[in-house]
Computed example of a mutant assay.
Amino acid sequence: MSRDQETNSEPVRLLFEMTREDNPRLYDDLIRFNKGTKRVNRLRFLAHEGLMAQNWMLMPVAGTLSQATASALHAPSKVNPAVAGHVVQAFDVPMLDGDD
């Protein structure tokens, strides 16, 4: 097995702490669940949906789409890019005191 194949098969493990001041909406959503599997699954779901929303906004429109499909793709998205960005921001390294 090559190094790339070994890396791709390894699970990703995360351990992080979050306070309400870091991201109030995400904190309030996650705190509804007890520690453990349910909370982890909720975070996994939110991260997946945020990734899908981010990819949806970047998807190019193919020239072979029907007129109805093309107009549906150009319809205003119900996903607010600023809000979707908070999902990505939640996984950024927290700023330390004194960082600008």
Results as ranks from 00 to 15, higher is better:
T7H: 12
T7E: 09
T7Y: 15
N8S: 09
N8G: 09
S9D: 10
S9M: 14
E10H: 14
E10C: 09
P11A: 05
P11E: 07
V12K: 15
V12W: 15
L14C: 05
L14T: 10
L14Y: 15
L15P: 01
F16Y: 04
F16D: 00
F16R: 00
E17R: 12
E17Y: 10
M18W: 05
M18G: 01
T19R: 02
T19Y: 06
T19Q: 14
R20T: 01
R20A: 05
E21L: 08
D22P: 00
N23I: 02
N23S: 11
P24F: 00
Y27P: 01
Y27D: 00
D29E: 11
D29S: 08
D29M: 07
D29P: 04
L30N: 00
L30W: 03
R32P: 09
R32A: 10
N34S: 12
N34G: 13
N34T: 07
K35G: 11
K35T: 08
G36Y: 02
G36D: 03
G36S: 04
G36I: 02
T37G: 09
K38H: 14
K38D: 11
N41M: 09
R42E: 15
R42S: 12
R44T: 06
F45N: 13
L46P: 04
L46M: 15
L46R: 08
A47P: 02
E49Y: 09
E49M: 08
E49G: 06
E49I: 07
G50H: 01
G50N: 01
L51P: 00
L51G: 14
M52V: 07
M52G: 04
N55G: 02
W56N: 09
M57W: 03
L58C: 04
L58M: 11
M59L: 10
V61M: 03
V61F: 00
A62P: 03
G63Q: 14
G63K: 15
G63T: 06
G63N: 10
T64C: 04
T64H: 11
L65G: 03
L65V: 06
S66Y: 09
A68Y: 12
T69R: 12
A70G: 00
S71D: 14
S71R: 05
A72T: 08
A72K: 10
A75L: 03
A75H: 13
A75S: 15
S77N: 14
V79R: 13
V79A: 15
V79D: 15
N80C: 09
N80E: 13
P81F: 05
P81G: 04
V83G: 02
G85D: 10
G85M: 06
H86F: 08
H86E: 14
V87M: 11
V88P: 01
Q89H: 12
Q89K: 13
Q89M: 10
Q89C: 08
